[in-house]
């Protein structure tokens, strides 16, 4: 992916920022090796603990700033789960909160220069996406038995169209985890790669003002994308959960 330009020997390695490196030494990356992925996931965990555990330490009726941030996020996700999945979906709130917080904090921490972005890795988002898919599918069959399959059988549609719609519905159902995970990884990876490309151009005196302005603009966009992708991932999880709990249209 490295692009080379003749003038000034400009070299871009926009994807080098995603290389997984061991934290200690240069050994091979085994499944248990603490790497930069581990480090930034750990920082995300610590940040979450700082906001939600240390922030709410006072249990104040009139919240401190940190506590009110935690309460806002809590209220936001709680309301989303309740609105989308209904009252019986509220017991899955901690799982959805976990997903949302991991993605949100990983996305925002990845915007710190020199940081690493775990949510840009397909392996990470695929685990999240397929995890949601598998859990929701199992939950759907456990809760509804075989009648979960009525999710694919549109009883409102004309009888002739129903089998065709059913095939389309089944395909779209199985595409869900793929789009769910690639959407997140693709957005984050693309944003960070573009930032890196602009940073490469900034080394060129002639275009550096434009490149730096571009970095600022793209960075602003990435701040939005980081929040929006966390929101989108979470609300889609809620929608899939709703389909599992109430498969009848």
């Amino acid at each position: 992916m490295a692009e080379e330009k003749a003038e000034g020997g400009l070299v871009f390695h926009p994807l080098d920022q995603f290389i997984v490196k061991p934290l200690f030494g240069d050994g091979p990356v085994a499944w248990y090796t603490p790497t930069n992925v581990t480090l930034w996931m750990g920082i995300a965990l610590l940040a979450i603990i700082a906001v939600f555990v240390l922030g709410s330490r006072g249990r104040a009726i009139i919240p401190t700033r940190l506590q009110s941030i935690g309460e806002l996020i809590y209220g936001f996700i709680y309301k989303m789960v309740e609105d989308v999945t209904g009252k019986d979906g509220v017991k899955y709130f901690p799982y959805i909160m976990t997903l949302f917080l991991f993605i949100l904090f990983a996305n925002y921490l990845a915007l710190i220069p020199m940081s690493y972005s775990p949510t840009s890795m397909i392996a990470v988002t695929a685990v999240l996406g397929f995890g949601v898919f598998i859990c929701v599918t199992i939950l759907g069959f456990v809760k509804n038995g075989a009648s979960f399959l009525s999710l694919f059988w549109m009883s409102d549609a004309p009888l002739i169209l129903r089998p065709i719609i059913a095939i389309i519905e089944v395909i779209s159902y199985f595409v869900r985890p793929v789009s769910h995970s690639i959407r997140l990884a693709g957005n984050i990876m693309a944003g960070h790669a573009v930032l890196k490309v602009f940073a490469g151009f900034a080394a060129l005196t002639l275009v550096s003002p434009v490149a730096i302005f571009g970095i600022v603009a793209i960075y602003g966009l990435e701040v939005l994308v980081a929040g929006i992708q966390a929101y989108v991932f979470t609300i889609l999880t809620c929608v899939y959960l709703k389909d599992a709990l109430h498969p009848h249209h």
Binding site: F18, V20, Y32, A44, M97, L128
Partner: peptide, 30 residues
């Protein structure tokens, strides 16, 4: 990087392992 680091199969188990650990930790804390 040779190709996309995202698609490097050597690194995937590591990411998945630490992701699962992190998610479990966040879930318990939450």
């Amino acid at each position: 990087a040779l190709g996309m680091p995202q698609l490097c199969a050597d690194w995937m188990p590591n990411q998945i392992f630490w992701l699962v650990i992190t998610l479990i930790a966040i879930y318990f804390v939450m």
